[in-house]
């Protein structure tokens, strides 16, 4: 028999499971790493339910083991034993009922806390679900100042942000685990929720309701930043696209405006104004492409523009055959939109 020296297999398994579990507690898409009041309430409720149910489960298993191992005695059928059993069962029933009431009460309290924001909403953002990307529109009193920021929700830190959720096609669900629970986006209905981030950071969210072929590639980034950084960001986003900085970008704009790109996309400041696909006015400044599928680099953008169906099969963007020169020019133009 060959036997491995060193740590036994059990220890390896335990170490792996433990380190995985601990790694899971730190990520930016994890409910056990709450970064806002709502997520904290949810995490506390989760841990409380886990603790109570864990203790009850352990007690039941101990009682079961005791009942299995215990030998029969002569006085088990006697009147005294029956009384003792009745007392024990009554006590256990009462404790169970009391625990259920406590669990229900904590759950209802946490739920009520989630629906009412901690203060007046600082900003209101429309969350619009599409197959398979998110649109975040910052409402403003001046219609020309409404900003669309696809797949990237910027919020100021420390204040409640009110989200009005809608869908353009099927049911989606908005879920940023570090900030709040899930909220469904239902066609024809406006649902709302509020989120608040206590610390600056980038939190990842994901569609949480199966919505079709590319449901798994429908992610978003929530960028929480201090109020002044947020205001600077939105000020930048309000600007239309400027003139292309160089000859390549200038040619890229020409190609862009004469190709099928304009049938779906908007670049404010040009004649491209269609609202079917994501707004590209500031596409160069974003963290990801294709709803969190690719990092926003020139190479990934090239792959996406030329053949998006290989990256994300079934998505709504048709492949584009461009000559090498035209493709490079379009890339230069899109990268210059910051």
């Amino acid at each position: 028999m060959t036997r491995r020296t060193g740590r036994p297999a059990g220890a390896w398994v335990a170490t792996t499971v433990l380190s995985l579990a601990l790694a899971g507690c730190r990520g930016n898409q994890v409910i056990f790493n709450p970064q806002g009041p709502a997520a904290r309430d949810i995490a506390q409720l989760g841990w409380f339910l886990f603790a109570v149910c864990g203790v009850v489960y352990a007690m039941v298993l101990v009682a079961l083991a005791w009942a299995l191992l215990r030998r029969r005695r002569e006085d088990d059928q006697g009147a005294g034993a029956t009384r003792a059993i009745t007392r024990t069962v009554a006590l256990a029933t009462a404790v169970t009922a009391a625990l259920l009431v406590v669990l229900a009460a904590t759950s209802v309290t946490a739920g009520r806390g989630l629906t009412s924001p901690s203060g007046p909403g600082a900003i209101t953002v429309d969350v619009i679900g599409h197959q398979w990307w998110w649109d975040f529109q910052y409402r403003d009193v001046t219609p020309s100042d409404v900003v669309s920021s696809p797949n990237e929700l910027h919020i100021p830190v420390g204040v409640p942000v009110v989200l009005r959720a809608q869908s353009r096609d099927v049911i989606h669900s908005f879920w940023v685990p570090n900030l709040h629970g899930k909220r469904d986006l239902i066609p024809g209905v406006v649902t709302s929720l509020w989120i608040q981030a206590d610390r600056p950071g980038v939190y990842r969210g994901q569609c949480a309701e199966f919505c079709g072929y590319q449901h798994a590639h429908m992610a978003m980034q929530v960028v929480a930043e201090p109020m002044d950084a947020f205001l600077a960001w939105i000020q930048r986003q309000r600007q239309p696209a400027g003139d292309p900085p160089d000859q390549e970008a200038l040619r890229g704009r020409e190609v862009f405006l004469q190709s099928p790109c304009v049938s779906c996309h908007t670049v404010r400041g040009t004649i491209a104004g269609s609202r079917v696909g994501p707004d590209l006015t500031h596409v160069g400044s974003r963290l990801t492409l294709a709803a969190g599928t690719l990092p926003n680099t020139r190479g990934h953008l090239a792959g996406w523009v030329a053949d998006s169906q290989s990256v994300k099969p079934g998505n709504r963007m048709p492949p584009n055959v461009l000559t090498a020169g035209d493709l490079q020019a379009v890339l230069g133009y899109l990268r210059s939109l910051r």
Partner: peptide, 13 residues
Amino acid sequence: SRPFQQLPAASAR
């Protein structure tokens, strides 16, 4: 059948 990846045919103009 969903021919997503028939690149030349799908993208011809």
